[in-house]
Design a protein around this nucleic acid. Structure first.
Lengths: 112, 112
DNA sequence: TTTCGTTATATTTGACAAGACATAACGAAA
DNA sequence: TTTCGTTATGTCTTGTCAAATATAACGAAA
């Protein structure tokens, strides 16, 4: 029975968190549902929490990550920008690479 | 102005956390002071919290990480075993390697 | 101008973790 | 057998964060 190594990574922009695993989940759910409120439901978090997260993401990012519309047909909605989609893909890639890297490093401890 | 990437790693042993950054700090402080209570003071955490952390570490590890003695000359004390010292060194090494690895990976996002 | 479902925001409530405090257990040495 | 500083453990309070609740703002379309 050997040990397991786990990690959590996040990206910051001048003191503020830009992206973490939870935020990426949220962005993916927005992409799938086309709306922040539906995304919140699918993730089983309150709308308020989802909105705060998304607001923080957009305030920390260099360029807009989502475009939110209020009112109008269907009440509005939210969708990812090109930049937002790229961020999600890049983050996932980095995260997976990190896991693989750490699994190799773990041998140093399991062999003790 | 570019983004920064941060990480936190930890090692688990069947559902329980064995090592994280805080626990490694504690082990280092024990090594330096020779006592759990002094280590707690130097880290500015309560003795109880320190004891709970150390207890959890020793229960999760395959071999003992510290040897604690109660009573006797000076009231007792705590010291790292060989295994404990190796764990601390290996963890630090993995952590530093992880940072370097992630800094490289971050370029994928900064170039977007 | 009324309806609708969404985004946007404030306020209150509740749960859980952290901290403070208290004290028992211990064993070598004087 | 008394003293001492440590390890070991329980209990209660407090602070913080999440959750629940409520509601305002909005704009296209009927």
């Amino acid at each position: 029975m050997s040990y397991k190594i786990k990690s959590r990574i996040w990206i910051e922009s001048k003191n503020n968190v830009l992206l973490g695993e939870g935020r990426v989940h949220l962005l993916k759910a927005i992409q799938e549902t086309g709306s922040l409120s539906k995304a919140a439901k699918s993730l089983n978090i309150s709308y308020k929490k989802a909105w705060q997260l998304l607001d923080s993401v957009n305030k920390s990012a260099k360029k807009p990550v989502t475009i939110n519309s209020i009112g109008g047909k269907g009440g509005g909605g939210a969708e990812l920008t090109e930049y937002g989609q790229s961020l999600v893909i890049a983050f996932d890639e980095i995260n997976k690479n990190c896991w693989a890297f750490l699994d190799k490093q773990l041998e140093k401890i399991n062999m003790l």
